[in-house]
Structures are given as structure tokens and as C-alpha cells.
């Protein structure tokens, strides 16, 4: 099997040092909508300046280079254990080249592995598909935003949230209010309705791979996404929690089948540094987006 280690290093470099075009465009739009001279506007101007600098200097946008989450679609007959070995090797190389901060800590000893590999670190989701190409997406999810991510179990009496989309709406608004600026607002919300506790969070994070300006194919979810985006931004938390018009850039909702007994709503909060990059390998050709 072909050695893709250097291709993975390049995927990591791109994810860490450059922001997807849709995210940068959303930040620019947010900047232009804030009051000139306000703390919110200044924060967004600094953010945009930093994005440009990181891109040109090829240095990390944020020093918290996060949990690396790989989603791999591979043709039949691919060795996933070999791909995993190459990915882990690429993380170690990318860490040495300072595209990543050493970020994997043993919870028992407190020891940092030094190379971004460890137990269940990185996260890799493998899926086999019928296409003749390999497709790899990488998300870098920072700890500040992970810490404000939250899971609710409906019904949730304190918010009068029942087992329906109105209940979902109520807990999502509460989650963003609880997060304030701590998750590096303006963030992006990946939300899952249903699943078990584990798959629910997985599904929520998967939503973060969607382009910010796509429209949910399920009309009632599309309507809820639009309504939540508007209502959340009326909370006034603003960039960095300084107050302002932009608290989130987008809201993306997906579903997973649940047990009759359980109704989870999982909210994966992603910081403004919404780092994701994609790679395709077809024959000899490797492309990035």
C-alpha cells in the first residue's frame, strides 16, 4: 500500500494554519455587521488579522491545535490499520514541525505523550465506500469549545423542554447562554437529536463538517437551524463574550435513531477557529480542499 504519511502531514498543516473559506467569509460578514469601534468589531478584526498571518506564516491559527478527528472513506480492500499507522506517524511529524502543539495527556500520570498520539488519540472514523478514491477529512477541535459542549436528556423540567423540536430549541438556547464567551465565540453549533450518549455526540461533531451556508435537506430542521441562528444572536453574548450581534456563525442539526427510553440532544460547540480540511487520493493524484 502506498505511503501517504507526508500527504497526511500536509492535511494537518492545512487544517491547523488555514481556515476554510466559508468560515473566513462568515467571520468577515460578522465583522462588517458589528458596530464600528465596538469591542466586538475589534475582536473580529484581530481574529481576521490573525487568520491572514497564520496562513502566510504557516503557523497555527490557535495554539490549542485540539483533538484531531479524522473521518476516512476508503475503497474496499484498503488496510485501515496501515492508514492508522501512517496517520499516527504524520501527527508526530506535524508536532515536530510545530503545526501542532503536543496535546495528548495521560489522565493518570499527567504525562504529555509529546507527539499527539495516545490511547484513543487521535479519533479516527473509518467508513468503507464503493468509490475508487480515498477521502479524508480532518477536524481540529479545541479544548475550550469542547469544554462548553453539552448533552441534555429530554424531558428537561427546569427549561420546560419536552421531547419535541421545541424542547430541542429550548436546551440549545440554554447551552449557548451557559457557554457565554468561554468557547471562543462566535462559534458554530453541531447538534444531534437522538442516538445513545456516545453516538449522539459523534453525530453532533459530524454536523460540523457541513459547509456553513448549506441548507438542511429536512425542512423542519432547516427551519429550526435558521430560527436558532437568529435567536442565539439576539442573546447579545457576542464575539469573545464581549457583547455584540454575533454569538454563533451557524447552527447545524442532524439526527440518529434513539431508544424509546432516551431522547438526547447533544451540542458540539466549535470555536470560531473552525478548522477542517479535506484530502482526496485518486490513483497518483492527491488534492486538498
Amino acid at each position: 500500500m502506498r505511503d501517504l504519511t507526508e500527504a497526511f502531514v500536509e492535511l494537518i498543516r492545512r487544517a491547523s494554519t488555514d481556515l476554510p473559506a466559508d468560515v473566513e467569509a462568515a467571520l468577515r460578514k460578522a465583522h462588517d455587521s458589528e458596530e464600528p469601534g465596538s469591542a466586538a468589531e475589534r475582536a473580529l478584526a484581530t481574529i481576521l488579522e490573525n487568520v491572514e498571518l497564520a496562513r502566510s506564516a504557516s503557523t497555527p491559527i490557535c495554539q490549542d491545535t485540539g483533538t484531531p478527528i479524522f473521518t476516512v472513506y476508503h475503497p474496499p480492500g484498503t488496510s485501515t490499520s496501515e492508514l492508522e499507522r501512517q496517520i499516527r506517524n504524520a501527527l508526530a511529524i506535524a508536532t515536530r514541525r510545530t503545526y501542532l502543539r503536543p496535546n495528548a495527556v495521560d489522565p493518570l500520570t499527567g504525562k504529555n505523550s509529546g507527539d499527539n498520539t495516545g490511547i484513543a488519540f487521535p479519533t479516527i472514523h473509518f467508513h468503507e465506500w464503493e468509490q475508487d478514491e480515498l477521502r479524508v477529512s480532518l477536524q481540529l477541535k479545541g479544548g475550550g469549545s469542547e469544554n462548553v459542549s453539552i448533552q441534555y436528556k429530554l424531558p428537561y423540567a427546569p427549561l420546560k423542554a419536552g421531547r419535541d423540536l421545541e424542547g430541542v430549541r429550548r436546551v440549545v438556547l440554554d447551552a449557548v447562554n451557559k457557554a457565554q464567551g468561554l468557547g471562543c465565540a462566535p462559534g458554530v453549533l453541531g447538534i444531534a437529536i437522538g442516538g445513545d450518549r456516545g453516538t449522539s455526540y459523534m453525530k453532533a461533531k459530524e454536523q460540523l463538517l457541513r459547509p456553513l451556508d448549506d441548507v438542511n435537506p429536512i425542512p423542519e430542521l432547516a427551519a429550526l437551524e435558521a430560527r436558532l441562528l437568529d435567536e442565539i444572536n439576539r442573546l447579545g453574548i457576542g464575539p469573545m463574550g464581549f457583547g455584540g450581534k454575533t454569538t454563533v456563525l451557524a447552527v447545524k442539526i442532524g439526527t440518529a435513531h434513539r431508544l424509546p427510553a432516551s431522547y438526547f440532544v447533544s451540542i458540539a460547540y466549535m470555536c470560531w477557529a473552525d478548522r477542517r480540511a479535506h484530502m482526496r487520493v485518486r490513483g497518483e493524484e492527491i488534492t486538498y480542499e
Binding site: 481574529i47 488579522e49 498571518l53 491559527i61 490557535c62 475550550g144 464567551g181 469573545m240 477557529a273
Partner: peptide, 9 residues
């Protein structure tokens, strides 16, 4: 500013 890491450096 959270995330403005290259700039602050």
C-alpha cells in the same frame, strides 16, 4: 483574543 495565537506570538 482567544485563538489569535499567531498574532499574539
Amino acid at each position: 483574543i482567544g485563538g489569535a495565537a499567531s498574532l499574539i506570538a
